[in-house]
Write a protein that binds this DNA or RNA. Structure first.
Lengths: 355, 355
DNA sequence: TTGTACGCGTTATCAT
DNA sequence: ATGATAACGCGTACAA
């Protein structure tokens, strides 16, 4: 506990007024009127004494803790989670809210236990962050507390949620390739059927369609979403005649792109001269470490954390009546392209630009 | 705020005793004695009602919040920070403590402001985590609160701190190489003069000395601690006659090792057949993504977070008198080797094993 | 315009 | 062996 003993009484005594007046002035109470002169005096002495209301006493009185709990699966095991936390934290600070952290496993029982623990700490609301974009059903104990989901959506839309625009991200990625003149673009994708997989495929197809290049299923190959999977998939999609071979690869994530780099190297394909690559996730460790540096698409983790906290704050003030609102659409935040050095125009292959 | 209205009074009424008795029993108060029978009854009804003490009221009464603040520079921008948080969080939970997060910049003024904010939230103690191992002087406002440092040490040893055993880590890394028969081992290191640089160099030299191989300054080359730096350094150290060239490289961190992989590839050196490499940091994204997977040394981030929270908890109970203790030695936690596929025996070069 | 006194849910002290 | 009650620091209805 802080050693400082400066309380509201000290301020009152020092300023020669009652605690009521101090409280009124410092909390900007509507109806309470004080002379401008005392207002000033109270504020300045409070400042001078370094007074700040004891949050615990205030919480007890107001029946709200001003703490919000961030419940996260396998917290920050991934750099992504860190950005979410950061975004939420800064937004919380701006509103005078405090962020408390609870990490939980993906086990149903653990989640139940951990949320209960969170609630016992009287958090005013909770942010529930999953490790990657997917659908969940809300832990039962969270139904009684304002909650917003990060990187996942609830089945029934009963709570607000925010997710990345997977499709839009894939679209800009593929469009970057198309803009450089590529027409045969491979898609090294993930074999898990999660929203990200579906969304990125949709974005890939949409970009192709808009550019009027026909979708060729032989150019999309799915593997596990790790580096070795990326390698395998890239080998397979690249292993064909020069004329038939894609001139560019869109990879499901940066790890798979890392595998694709190796495949390209083994095949004697230089990046980006012989093969352009764009990834997804903007894992800086990888994207900046690869040579040449990887052009990729950033997931808006910081922004999601920020948005979620804002939504939660609103939910918390309007709790009384608007609790009836029971159908939220997920907010989808856009995924910006970050250009580095892995994209260039294709080499003039055989001549014709048609397919 | 949680909706649940079950308070101590409810338990008391339900169990047919006074709140005093309930409090005594649930808090295991020494001197207060109650019949075993009521004990049982109280405990079971508390359980049945799902009672948990209101932490805010308890804090107000006990004059301690049971919250500890984690002040971190650029929180979780790095995956490392995440592991620290995780370790601290789990240790906190075990003790019934709550972790609140504050991120701060490295700017002196911001730190001051942020710590003040933290203290106003009546945290009982603070963990101060820096982004990488270095020396700092403690923000003034933290002198009044139990504090422990993570990944940094204070100039004057006035607070406990925990740091990784850089030297020991480097020692096991180089020893792994020596154990496989390498004698000419290059060191691709960092040009910044930070504790990690000094410690890892010391470990390198100690391992060499113990194996009775002479230290050759031409084999250590320093560059910026990023991937391109690793590439440059590795090129430079590898660019010599076959007989003179090191058969293995110890890299300052995994990013530099990533650069070294590229250098090796360009030189036509296969890993680990022609060149063994070991890194430092165990950044899984890189270490597992490289091909072949990188043998490296893990920084004990989780353990540091855990240790720090334990130390802080002790500091908090013994605050009264032992505040006099004013000279702490940093705790140094060991860095284990994690073996993957980048180390093998050197190829029989010219024949002689001497230097 | 300002001050007094009570309540928030616990724990701790002191009676019984 | 158990219960009544003050106190923690603040906010606020109500009296002055």
């Amino acid at each position: 506990m802080a050693r400082k003993a400066v309380g509201i009484k000290d301020v009152a005594r020092e300023a020669g007024v009652s605690v009521t007046t101090v409280s009124h002035i410092l909390n900007d109470v509507e109806f309470a009127r004080a002379s401008d002169e005392t207002r000033e005096r109270v504020k300045s002495t409070a400042e001078r004494l370094g007074y700040g209301a004891n949050r615990i006493a205030r919480s007890l009185r107001r029946q709200q803790s001003e703490m919000i709990g961030l419940l996260s699966e396998e917290i920050a095991t991934t750099p992504h989670a860190g950005r979410i936390i950061l975004g939420a934290q800064e937004a919380a600070r701006k509103r005078g809210l405090t962020l408390v952290l609870i990490n939980t496993s993906r086990d149903e029982l653990d989640i139940q236990r951990d949320t209960d623990a969170l609630l016992r700490q009287q958090v005013d609301g909770v942010l529930y962050a999953t490790m990657y974009h997917r659908e969940i059903d809300l832990p039962r104990s969270l139904r009684s507390v304002p909650t917003v989901l990060i990187d996942s959506t609830s089945q029934d839309g009963s709570v607000p949620s925010v997710v990345p625009d997977e499709e839009g991200g894939a679209y800009v990625a593929v469009n970057e390739l198309i803009g450089h003149g590529h027409r045969r673009i491979g898609f090294v994708t993930n074999s898990d059927d999660v929203p990200a997989t579906r969304g990125r495929l949709a974005g890939y197809r949409r970009a192709l369609a808009e550019a009027e290049v026909e979708f060729d299923p032989r150019l999309v190959v799915a593997e596990q979403s790790e580096t070795p999977g990326g390698y395998k998939a890239a080998r397979s999609v690249l292993d064909r005649d020069r004329a038939d071979r894609p001139t560019a690869l869109f990879c499901y994530n940066d790890r798979m792109a890392m595998g694709a780099y190796r495949a390209a190297a083994e095949l004697g394909l230089r990046i980006p001269a012989d093969l352009s690559i764009v990834g997804f996730d903007n894992q800086e460790l990888i994207a900046e470490g690869l040579y040449p540096a990887l052009t990729t698409v950033a997931l808006p983790h910081f922004e999601m954390g920020e948005w979620a906290l804002g939504a939660l704050a609103e939910l918390m003030v309007g709790d009384a009546d608007s609790a009836a609102k029971d159908s939220y659409q997920p907010a989808v935040l856009s995924c910006p392209l970050v250009r580095r050095d892995s994209v260039a125009a294709p080499r003039p292959a055989g001549g014709s630009a048609g397919d």
